[in-house]
């Protein structure tokens, strides 16, 4: 499956590095990244292939969420289908 990973929060140094490191640690292959900073708000959207994850997807999502909490960010990993369902007919 493909997951959309979203990261929002106050911009600081090294956010992309931290998220990418966790993805690599659990064998999630990042296939696309877009990232912007609006004023002081950091927004990043990643598309990742999670077929070969070393853990269950729910655990991977939990780890990213915990990484977010530790860094004052909102990090969510969600199944791509939810966005397709809501925004495509």
């Amino acid at each position: 499956m493909r997951a959309i990973i979203t990261v929002t929060g106050k911009d600081t140094v090294g956010i992309i590095a931290k998220v990418s490191k966790t993805c690599a640690e659990y064998n999630a292959n990042i296939t696309d990244i877009t990232q912007k900073v609006f004023d002081d708000l950091f927004v990043m959207i990643m598309l990742a292939d999670t077929d070969r994850l070393s853990v269950r997807f729910t655990e991977f999502a939990d780890r990213l969420s915990a990484l977010g909490q530790a860094n004052n960010l909102d990090i969510r990993a969600m199944h791509e289908d939810i966005f397709d369902a809501m925004h495509k007919i």
Partner: peptide
Amino acid sequence: MINDKDILETLHMLQQ
């Protein structure tokens, strides 16, 4: 690829 605007809209619905 789903466009970023749609992703952010869903995110906003969930967060706010």
